[in-house]
Amino acid sequence: MDLFAAIGMPEVPLFPDQASAHAGRVDRLFFFILAVTGGMGASVGLLLAVFAFRYRRRTAADRTPRITGFPLLEWGWTLGPILPFAVMFAWGLAVYRDNYAPPPDAYEVFVVGKQWMWKVQHPGGQREINELHLPAGRPVKVTLISEDVIHDFGTPAFRKKVDVLPGRYVTVWYEPTAPGRYRLFCNQYCGTGHADMVGAIVVQRPDEHSKWLRDHAEGSAALEGRKLFLKLQCVSCHRTDGDAKAPVLEGLYGRRVLLRDGSTTEADAAYIRDSILYPAKQVAAPWEPVMPTFQGQVSEEEVLLLVAYVRSLGRGDLPRPNNDTPPPIGAPTELPNAGGAKK
């Protein structure tokens, strides 16, 4: 790009940064397809040029042969492209499949998209807006949800993007390799401020990233979730003594849960989110469907804090309910025991 610099123009990148191993894999496939299609396109273009020149009309008396086809050639160019196309397909799938296999030890980050910003929560409680600080050399799994319409978390330097849907967690994972500052774009049109829904992925050396985390700690996500859990009086039902009206949450995360309809499901983030917002959707087995919905009372960010709290709960971690003190301000005005069958 020295040419541009020489004439006083700003530097013009013609190829994106590679900030992950995956980026290199995508680029190699890209150049393979470019070589194959470039070769095919150049052949067609060259033939057109040669024919256009060689067979241009010279005289009105030009004689043209009657050639209606040549079946061998037809079948050749009908079946011929199948092999290179199959290679592109299989190669594309092989590189893409890795989206579905995030390493189990990945660092986990949660992102909420809303018109028109990205709000990021780290497990240690660090929060950021329109920036995402990541350590180089360590896989990171990002769980995303939208508060309103469909957005898309696009990270060109990682060659990955994922549509961020309302009402459903989606995940994407990266293994950043090169420290630096890279663009983050919303790629799914989301309204007036679509072009403002941009930011930066900041990849740091591990020691810098640890320092950044230390400097920005505010109390872990689980701790924030615990405050919310108490504020919403969840503990009046989710308790460990004989008065429990709802499942014990200690050690629940990641286990398989038996539901009332006889099926089972994994108690993952999506299950816990659904249980908070759509409690009637999947009711755990012996329990009555008495839980009220918290839709409208908690935001997606707060749901993520509650998920982080439930996830952190080991045996004996749940607080004891204290019915002598009144519910804190902001709690539901009625105790959530709508069915009340057991009381």
Partner: peptide, 16 residues
């Protein structure tokens, strides 16, 4: 379009 039909490349250039 052959680039876009390849899953991994499409993930990078989709909606661009």
């Amino acid at each position: 379009g052959l680039f876009l039909a390849a899953l991994a490349v499409d993930q990078h250039v989709h909606d661009t």
